[in-house]
Design a protein around this nucleic acid. Structure first.
Length: 397
DNA sequence: CTAGGGTTAG
């Protein structure tokens, strides 16, 4: 009961906009609030002619805000800041958005995400919620902790305390993705609907995230349903949306369907403004094919180059080489090198090294030696480690 | 003299 804790002692009607039920069965465990034994923390902006904290008025928020920020950023000491803030609050200080922001940032910066979440909850429950902009900023920061259950609890607490607050679309998308990555599609999908209720229009990222999530857990039918809803909502899919489907379809060994969708990928690339989307989609297609052992399909791509000018050619070769190496198909990768060189491209030395090294480990040292010699033509000088492996291999042969 | 602060799918 995430909201129960936050609201204990107060009598408020339950907020229908919160998602308490979603976190009820969460893996969230209440984080331990860690405080080192109390110690005197000197003020970093201590005036020269006075001795203690008490001499500066508690109402001098500018001074204390600077102090808190200074401790958090230049000293990177979240614990000292928490102590200082505790002392100040005893004296009647009311933390503002900036103070809260400083502390949450410092905790996240130190990778103390669970404390950051807990601290934020404490601020909210003591009616110290920051302004809307800061809330979104801090949620973005908390999401980096990859603990979507905890972040959702914070969002629920905020919804209860500040009913007018709506997390940004990007934050919602990231949160949904977090649940997708955990395979919790039921939570992800509910959040998706919740986001719409709160006034957001899901974008291509929102839909693609859900489709990818369903594909990942093997629910291709559900993924296809979301895909259909997408066009009904007037949101245009892009190459990444198709690759999200392809991943699920190929995993189900629906090769024909996969190839049809690949055709769609190349098609929508034409209309894409963001080159990164096309590049990422190309990588994804090649990765899916290799993962499913469909190496002949990768070679079809090298032959036909169906992505055309929508993916930089050199990048495409590099990606195919790297993916083939990732799945330990070093001879196949060497074939890509052969073909790209024939077309006037030079492999990156890092990729080339990967191939030579991989061939050595595969006991194909003669082929490795061949490549090593050919590599001289474009400045390939193997690292010491690779040379050692190569020599050892040749000796064995 | 109202400060400082981070962005999504792959």
């Amino acid at each position: 009961m995430s909201l129960g804790k936050v609201n204990s002692g107060r009598h408020r009607p339950p907020n229908p906009r919160t998602l308490a039920s979603l976190v009820e069965h969460s893996s969230y465990t209440k984080c331990e609030f860690i405080t080192s034994p109390p110690q005197k923390i000197p003020s970093p902006v201590q005036p020269k002619n006075t001795a203690g904290l008490e001499t500066i008025s508690i109402t001098n928020t500018t001074h204390w805000t600077k102090c808190i920020h200074n401790l958090c950023t230049t000293h990177c000491d979240a614990d000292a800041t928490l102590h200082l803030l505790h002392d100040l609050r005893v004296r009647g200080f009311h933390p503002n958005s900036l103070n809260i922001s400083s502390i949450i940032h410092a905790l996240c910066h130190a990778n103390r995400y669970s404390e950051a979440h807990h601290r934020f909850l404490l601020f909210i429950s003591s009616h110290c919620s920051p302004d809307e902009h800061t809330c979104n900023l801090l949620i973005a920061r908390l999401l980096n902790g990859r603990d979507p259950y905890s972040t959702l609890r914070v969002i629920n607490a905020l919804a209860d305390e500040k009913p007018e607050f709506v997390p940004s679309l990007v934050n919602f998308n990231r949160l949904i993705d977090g649940f997708c990555k955990l395979g919790r599609l039921e939570v992800a999908h509910l959040l998706f609907y919740h986001m719409i209720e709160r006034g957001h229009r899901p974008n291509v990222v929102s839909f693609t995230t859900l489709i990818s999530g369903y594909s990942m857990i093997g629910k291709v039918c559900a993924a296809e349903k979301v895909f259909d809803e997408m066009s009904e909502c007037g949101v245009r899919c892009n190459a990444l949306t198709y690759t999200a489907l392809i991943r699920g379809v190929l995993r189900k060994r629906e090769l024909e369907n996969g190839i049809r969708l690949m055709g769609k990928v190349w098609e929508v690339m034409e209309y894409e403004d963001d080159v990164q989307v096309n590049n990422a989609a190309f990588c994804s297609v090649v990765d899916c094919l290799c993962r499913e052992g469909l190496f002949h399909e990768v070679f079809k791509i090298v032959e036909d180059m169906p992505q055309g000018k929508n993916v930089p050619e050199g990048f495409a070769y590099g990606q195919m080489i790297d993916s083939l190496c990732k799945f330990e198909r070093y001879n196949a990768a060497a074939r890509i090198v052969y073909m790209m060189r024939k077309r006037g491209f030079t492999p990156s030395l890092v990729s080339y090294n990967l191939i030579v090294h991989g061939l050595c480990n595969d006991d194909d040292c003669l082929r490795a030696y061949q490549l090593w010699e050919e590599g001289m033509e474009f400045g390939y000088l193997p690292s010491e480690f690779t040379s050692k492996v190569r020599v050892e291999g040749l000796c064995r042969d």
